[in-house]
Amino acid sequence: MRRLDRRAFLATGTAAATGLALPALAQGVPDTVQMEASLSSTTRRNTASFHAQDWRPYFSNLRNGAILVDIGSRALHMWQEDGRHYIYPSSVPQSEDLTRRGRTRVVRKVVGPTWRPTPNMRRRNPEWPAVVEPGPDNPLGSHALYLSWTYYRIHGTHDDRKIGRRSSSGCIGLYNRHIAQVFAMSKVGTQVLLI
């Protein structure tokens, strides 16, 4: 039997911190939580902050499903009406002044959205185009859920480096493969809460 020395202990801790021990992270997480094991290296460091949430403190029911975005842990939680729960790593706003918290809902769903920078974005970045059509250069990625708050979206991104970071101008970003899943499960009227 090998003796556990300081070097081995530190190597084990480093492996856990970098996500190499990801299967151990899932121990004790309910089976209803769906987490992708093959997270990118960018988001691996944030997986320790993912934890199962119970929807009941946040929503009175799951009619039309429910989405909770935890800004602090950079995770989007989704519950379907039958209670199935999914967790996705997300990007969140760059700063507190760009962050909006509270209750809203999905008011529109768009595959291949067109992006129009807000007036404030155009003032800060006058070189930006007024419109970006769907495609690989579109900051909204492949799908977008439009919220009842003007200019706020839950959308995909073609830039995977943004996920797991404070990198947006107010929206919540997901990998394109994840927004496609959330998009399919969402309805117009799905409840959304940002905390």
Rank of each mutant, 00 (worst) to 15 (best):
P93S: 07
V33T: 11
Y88N: 00
W79M: 08
N138D: 07
Y86L: 09
N125A: 14
K109G: 00
R74S: 04
L145S: 09
L140Y: 03
T42P: 06
N46P: 05
A26G: 14
R123N: 08
T99I: 04
K109H: 04
F59Q: 06
W149D: 02
N120L: 13
P136H: 09
W55L: 10
L76D: 00
E81C: 03
S40Q: 08
V92G: 02
P129M: 10
W149I: 08
A144P: 02
H85G: 13
Q27W: 14
S91D: 06
L140G: 02
W149L: 11
W149P: 09
W55D: 12
R84H: 15
T104L: 02
D54R: 11
E96H: 11
G112A: 08
L39P: 03
T118V: 11
A26H: 01
S148H: 04
G28A: 12
R45V: 13
R74A: 01
L76C: 05
S90R: 01
P57G: 13
L76M: 04
R124E: 13
Q53V: 15
S73A: 13
R108W: 06
H85W: 15
N125P: 09
Y146I: 03
L68T: 03
P113S: 04
D70M: 05
W115Y: 12
A130I: 14
G141T: 09
L147H: 04
L25Y: 13
W115L: 09
M78A: 12
G135R: 03
A48F: 10
Y88A: 06
A75K: 05
A37K: 02
D70W: 01
A37G: 07
G135Y: 02
L76I: 07
G112E: 06
Q53H: 12
Q94R: 15
G102C: 03
G112M: 01
S38M: 06
T104Q: 02
M78Y: 08
A66I: 07
G72D: 11
D54G: 06
P93G: 07
I71K: 07
W128A: 15
T114A: 06
H85R: 08
S49V: 11
P117R: 11
V107G: 00
V29L: 14
A52K: 10
A37M: 10
M78R: 09
P139C: 11
G28Q: 11
V111K: 05
G135P: 00
Y58N: 08
V33H: 02
Y86Q: 07
S40G: 14
A37C: 03
Y146W: 03
G72E: 09
N61F: 12
P134K: 05
S60H: 11
T118E: 11
L147W: 02
H51T: 15
G65I: 06
T99A: 08
